[in-house]
Design a binder for these strands. Structure first.
Length: 795
RNA sequence: GGGCGAGUGGCGGAAUUGGUAUACGCGGCAGACUUAAAAUCUGCUUCCUUUACCGGAUUAUGGGUUCGAGUCCCAUCUCGCCCACCA
């Protein structure tokens, strides 16, 4: 007598899959395709985490399920390898990131294979491989050619002692994390992708996506479209200057009693009065130095008067111009018209500095708003010719009135900014740009790609705040069209590398193009994409690039991901995040090797709870899944079989449940249904047909065991189909309620279940029910044949 | 502060269109097998009352709609996530 030995079975099948490569995908126009992928991992030195296992197992379950259902499945795998951890490790130890990455990938690959995933390993990709990033650079150049990759000045943290740019998290209490010196903000030239050019389409198409609402909402908030107007203000004593503000409430313009500029606003130095100049300069300097976090922490309004006045274009009144850090330089025009009667922030500011407050909207009598600054719609007052009208109706009329005089126009503004992609780092994809003697940026010709990341020994940024690449003269100097130029030494944000990899999967070894059109349009868009991170950034960037490359004719679709599954985290048994420092990490390979095997681990992680919620690991509960698989094995290999097939009802019900649940990604209830089925088979005994069905249903969850069973049963793995006529048992249970309370259950033959008069008669003649009715008058009787339920209502 | 979501046994969770609440698993209890333990198998396990039957209560709290509410509506409380001076 043998026993369930997962490690032995798994080694056998993994070896076979390695040899036979059954998961290699080929285009096939005779079958519908299914392109399914997880968000590719960053291969850390720590190896696979139970979180990876959950993510990959969801994808694998669906990939195998659809393959068994006859779809042509593409289930690729790759590595997102550029990034800070490898670079920091290099700075610390001197080991080249290329070497570390190679070792980490080898480890990840080995571990993924121990989990038995149905991956097409011939398509494996790695973003730091020059064969791959050659095409990341090509993508950059397409955006550059169309003006969607551009340079602009931008404030960055700068340490004047270390002479280096610092990331936000490298600034501690306004000081450099290394030397402790006060940091300042310095304007530096940076590269951007013009994602805002697609803001409207990115927003409008969100609703059509089969994505979780949570993520759709987050993307909408991130894009943050708001409709309003730009209004121009003339400036007293400065006839050549003018200030433009953005507002969503042009209807309140008669209530604009002052203007406020962001401290970064460039007009300040030109309009400030002599007696205010010193105070304004000091305020601006201090405000600009503050980090975003510090600005938000202290919400008490601060500000300073510039001594200058603007003219309100609605009524010609002069109004003072102030500077305050509650106005953000990066949004709208960096200047606002303040309407203290109807905006809370402006109201607070006006109270603080004793500025005039003029009400222009009468709050309706039934309004419960008593904040002293009513910000909803109402009837216009103090607004000259617009008095008496409704504020909502006046909005457009006022813009039109301003527009006639050239003082304003409709305007749509977005919270989303353009995507800053320059990184002063070594371990990233080099930006394929060189500068001529005049500092003009030129594209590196496509036949000179890839711009290969040179091997260096010192990975730290140099004194000018540029990446380590700036130290390599050999790298920096390049000849383009006979002219000597200097290469860009910044590298690309890692998100650029992951913005197109889904398409590379469809044609990963193409030497002549990022992807072949036929292949990409056969496989993509990705049918199912699964991840547990990057709700906004990555998922918005992929959508952006998809629209751009569709416009350029390289793709025939405008949305990259049809269905998105967003899985939750796996936490430690104590409910906290797993982390090395807390010592509560569960290593998936340990779980396998201690005897549970990969099938138990995979099935457990799918059974642990709804896939989209966080779950806490339970060292006890995984044993229950092992027992379940053990019982599957015992039924198949160690128990006598029934010669008579007597489980058709539960078998067909199980097929239905597992099929529908797996499609819906309700993996936990699918596993529960298989458990119920196995429990039933333990009682009745299993016919061969039961075992074949069980093995087929089990295959997406526990593929090694299922293959072992199918081999012994000499069966294919074609997904079973349920027969609707076999879902009903011979008898049904009639539920009888009196006044909505359950009072009796009556067994009856299934043939009678649809006969409503029979059901009513059965219910009323039941002695238990009669007890509850007694002499009381029956008001009405509700019979729901579909649910075999009768409710008798008595007085 | 704003937006969204969620509150079900000792625990993770199920209930798919308003129709039998607590599936499945863990844990616990009892029994079988065993010299014994583990493993395995069988049964019980929401709470209260009861030896048991019977009965009653129960899906955060309070109200409402309905023959019937975990599910729909209103209010309150708690937790989670996202955004956060975006004019």
């Amino acid at each position: 007598m043998s026993h369930y030995d997962p490690l032995k079975i798994e080694a056998k099948w993994q070896e076979r899959w390695e040899k036979e490569q059954p998961f290699v995908a080929k285009e096939n126009n005779g079958q519908p395709k299914m392109f399914i992928a997880e968000m590719f991992p960053y291969p850390s030195g720590a190896g696979l985490h139970v979180g990876h296992v959950r993510n990959f197992s969801i994808v694998d379950c669906l990939a195998r399920f659809y393959a068994q259902n006859g779809l042509n499945v593409l289930r690729p795998f790759g590595y997102d390898t550029f990034g800070l951890p490898a670079e920091n490790y290099a700075i610390k130890t001197g080991t080249a990131p290329q070497e570390v990455t190679k070792a980490n990938i080898a480890n990840f690959r080995k571990q993924a294979k121990r989990l038995g995933y149905a991956i097409d390993w011939s398509r494996e990709i790695n973003t730091s491989d020059p064969e791959y990033y050659k095409w990341t650079q090509w993508c950059f150049l397409q955006l550059f050619k169309k003006g969607l990759a551009y340079q602009a000045e931008n404030y960055q943290w700068w340490c004047p002692v270390d002479k280096t740019v610092l990331a936000n998290e490298q600034v501690e209490n306004g000081c450099c994390w290394r030397c402790g010196h006060e940091v300042e903000k310095k304007k530096m030239k940076q590269w951007f992708f013009k994602i805002t050019a697609y803001a409207d389409e990115l927003l409008d198409e969100i609703d059509s996506l089969d994505w979780p609402d949570k993520i759709k909402t987050m993307q909408k908030n991130w894009i943050g479209r708001s409709e309003g107007a730009e209004i121009d203000f003339a400036i007293a004593k400065h006839p050549k200057e003018q200030l433009t503000v953005f507002t969503t409430r042009p209807d309140t313009i008669f209530g604009a009693t002052f203007l406020v500029l962001a401290p970064e606003h460039e007009i300040i130095s030109r309009i400030v009065s002599d007696d205010a100049r010193d105070a304004v300069a000091a305020y601006c300097k201090a405000a600009i130095k503050k980090s975003e976090i510090e600005r938000q922490e202290n919400k008490e309004k601060t500000g300073v008067f510039t001594g200058a006045y603007a003219i309100n274009p609605a009524n010609g009144e002069p109004i003072p111009i102030w500077v305050a850090d509650y106005v953000l330089s990066g949004y709208g025009t960096g200047a606002i018209m303040a309407v203290p009667a109807h905006d809370e922030r402006d109201h607070e500011f006006a109270e603080q500095f004793d500025l005039p407050i003029i009400k222009v909207i009468e709050k309706p009598e039934n309004s419960i708003d008593d904040s002293g600054c009513y910000h909803d719609e109402g009837v216009m007052v103090n607004s000259d010719r617009f008095n008496g009208q409704d504020s909502a109706d006046v909005r457009e009329a006022i813009v039109a009135w301003l527009e006639e005089r050239g003082l304003g126009r409709k305007k749509v503004t977005y919270r989303m900014r353009d995507w800053l992609i320059s990184r002063q780092r070594y371990w990233g994809c080099p930006i394929p740009i060189a500068y001529d003697k005049n500092g003009v940026a030129h594209a590196i010709p496509e036949d000179q790609l890839p711009v290969v990341l040179p091997k260096v020994t010192d990975y730290r940024p140099d004194e000018s705040g540029r990446s380590a690449l700036a130290k390599s003269d050999e790298f920096k100097t390049v000849i383009i069209d006979g002219e000597e130029m200097t290469r860009e030494t910044d590298t690309l944000d890692g998100y650029a590398c992951s913005s197109w990899y889904l398409w590379r999967y469809t044609d990963p070894r193409n030497q002549n193009a990022a992807w072949g059109k036929d292949k990409v349009n056969y496989w993509a868009p990705t049918d199912i994409y699964c991840g547990g991170d990057h709700a906004v950034a990555h998922l918005l960037y992929v959508r952006f690039w998809c629209k751009f490359f569709a416009d350029e004719g390289y793709l025939d679709f405008r949305e990259p991901v049809k269905r998105l599954l967003y899985n939750g985290y796996i936490n430690a048994p104590d409910g906290k995040k797993m982390s090395k420092s807390k010592g509560n990490v569960i290593d998936p390979l340990d779980v396998i090797d201690q005897g549970y095997g990969a099938d138990t681990l995979r099935t457990y992680e799918l059974f642990i709870g709804p896939y989209n919620l966080d779950a806490a690991w339970s060292t006890e509960a995984i044993g229950g899944v092992y027992r379940f698989l053990n019982r599957c094995w015992t039924l198949c290999f160690d128990k006598a079989r029934n010669s008579k097939d007597e489980n058709t009802t539960i078998r067909h019900r199980t097929i239905k449940k597992v099929t529908e649940d797996t499609k819906r990604a309700d993996f936990n209830t699918a596993v529960a249904a298989m458990m119920e089925y196995v429990n039933a088979l333990y009682k009745t005994g299993a016919h061969e047909e039961d075992l074949i069905t069980l093995a087929k249903l089990l295959k997406p969850y526990a593929p090694h065991l299922a293959c072992e069973m199918l081999e012994s049963l000499e069966s294919d793995d074609v997904w079973p189909v349920y027969d609707t006529t076999k879902l009903k048992a011979d008898t049904v249970e009639l539920v009888v309620q009196v006044n909505g309370k359950l009072r009796s259950r009556i067994q009856l033959p299934v043939e009678e279940a649809n006969d409503t008069t029979r059901l009513e008669q059965l219910a009323k003649s039941d002695p238990k029910v009669q007890n509850y009715i007694g002499d009381k008058e029956i008001v009405k009787t509700i019979v729901i044949a579909q649910n075999h339920l009768v409710n008798i209502v008595v007085k």
